[in-house]
């Protein structure tokens, strides 16, 4: 297995310089998700304004894949509608489960296209999904609160 396929430059760049890090106020919901098999942990906050995700802030410990995935995810969803973001979640999940079969749309996925390579490493798929699952959980809870 060629590790350069896994550790694409985009991923290493996000890992070294994560976007939107730190826990910020105000927020509607905070969730804590863990990956018990490896110990990765993520605390994530979501702030909604109507149906728009105003902010996502986070603090976590984890491998390069999970950290980079969190950073990329925040770039993709901050300022977007809940509906659009949850659509991205579904498509990202489908891509991650595709074992490298799905070639993502670069306009829609931006830096997240780098994770297509990760989907060929089944043991690492859950690393890439940690932040997205946390986001879905937090957005779901925040939407329930609003309605």
């Amino acid at each position: 297995m060629n590790i350069d396929e896994l550790y694409q430059t985009i991923i290493l760049d996000h890992y070294r310089e994560k976007h939107h890090t730190g826990l910020r106020e105000p927020y509607d919901v905070q969730v804590h998700h863990v990956n018990p098999s490896c110990g990765d942990e993520l605390t994530l906050r979501v702030s909604l304004a109507g149906d728009v995700i105003k902010d996502v802030s986070y603090e976590g410990e984890g491998c390069s894949i999970s950290q980079a995935s969190t950073s990329v995810m925040t770039d993709l969803v901050i300022g977007e509608t809940v509906r659009h973001s949850m659509g991205l979640y579904d498509d990202f999940l489908e891509m991650m489960q595709s074992k490298g079969e799905i070639t993502p749309d670069e306009d829609r996925f931006e830096d997240a296209i780098a994770f297509a390579g990760v989907s060929k490493f089944p043991a690492r798929v859950k690393c890439a999904l940690l932040s997205w699952s946390a986001l879905r959980d937090a957005v779901g809870q925040a939407s329930d609160k609003e309605s």
Binding site: M1, I3, C38, G39, G62, C63, S64, I65, F121, C127
Partner: peptide, 26 residues
């Protein structure tokens, strides 16, 4: 600056099997 999972992955690509994680001792 390298997470154990990443160490494990790079070593695995060179045929070296080690364990990364908390080894059931959190």
């Amino acid at each position: 600056d390298v997470h154990p999972h990443d160490v494990m992955q790079v070593l695995d690509s060179r045929g070296i099997a080690i364990r990364g994680g908390h080894h059931c001792a959190r």
